[in-house]
Design a protein around this nucleic acid. Structure first.
Lengths: 132, 132
DNA sequence: GGTAATTTACTCGGATATCCGTTGTCCGAGTATAGACGG
DNA sequence: CCGTCTATACTCGGACAACGGATATCCGAGTAAATTACC
């Protein structure tokens, strides 16, 4: 079990957008170069972020992506959910009663992690990070 | 990102072994029937648990698997590590300085989950669980 | 009846097949800006 | 000048390919108990 590279790309892209304090949108070319990933693939990832309402895209010349108003409250968990999906990490498909104790334990542990990720925003990092 | 079915099988098998309060080893056939999984596949999973020293195997007739002495202290995390591996869930492979702030956040969150899984043992469930 | 040979019931491990999510690539379509061109 | 026309620079989204790990299956080898055969 691993977090996908896409999640890593998404987090880094969000951080990059947050730190480029410009109102103009940033082209996917620029963003892709930073992370050495193909622009087309990165655009697919960004589309997910757009659909979740974290990022806006502008078509045409001088177009690109930029953070939505109120981006300061976007948490790590929001971004991870957008890429990985919102479903639980552990699912027991056996039919041994309505409640699987093992599943309960796993979900409680997962909740602990999510709680941490929910309380951490991209904005928290902007102050600390100097170079991208 | 999902926990593998193998992890689910491993956890349920451990719980089953813990609850079958017999000194005799339990055959993989029996264990596989409980979870409706093929015996050969389950044996592969059990081999991992044997290698990590949580389970012992006895060859030959009347052979099978049984928990090691001191199994009461085996945690969820031990079992998960045995199946999924011990490596971190999130790894940033970019070369932007020695420490990636994003990675730091992810690792801290992951630690929270592992802490919970480390403090939960199979033995904890044996008392609560009545039927398998 | 005791010993040896054989059958039976298991685990172990390697090789292999299948499936599916991840990670990309390619391309056509749509869109907005910039520049060229004609009046 | 001013409006239009075209080239250019982008994003968007669907189709598709490559890859690797998860999920099995098959089979031969080893092992220990149970059973049988033999003297």
């Amino acid at each position: 079990m691993k977090y996908s590279k896409a999640t890593n790309y998404a987090l880094h892209t969000m951080l990059h957008l947050a730190m480029s304090n410009t109102t103009k949108p940033v082209g996917v070319q620029t963003l892709a170069e930073q992370q050495q990933v193909s622009p087309t693939y990165l655009s697919k990832i960004l589309t997910k972020l757009v659909k979740e309402g974290m990022v806006t895209s502008v078509s045409g010349a001088n177009g690109g992506y930029s953070l939505v108003h109120g981006w300061e409250s976007i948490s790590f968990l929001d971004i991870i959910y957008a890429i990985e999906g919102k479903s639980s990490l552990f699912e027991c498909h056996f039919n041994h009663g309505p409640e699987c104790l093992i599943q309960k334990v796993m979900l409680r542990a997962e909740e602990k992690m999510e709680e941490e990720l929910r309380n951490q925003t991209i904005a928290d990092l902007v102050n600390k990070e100097t170079t991208f």
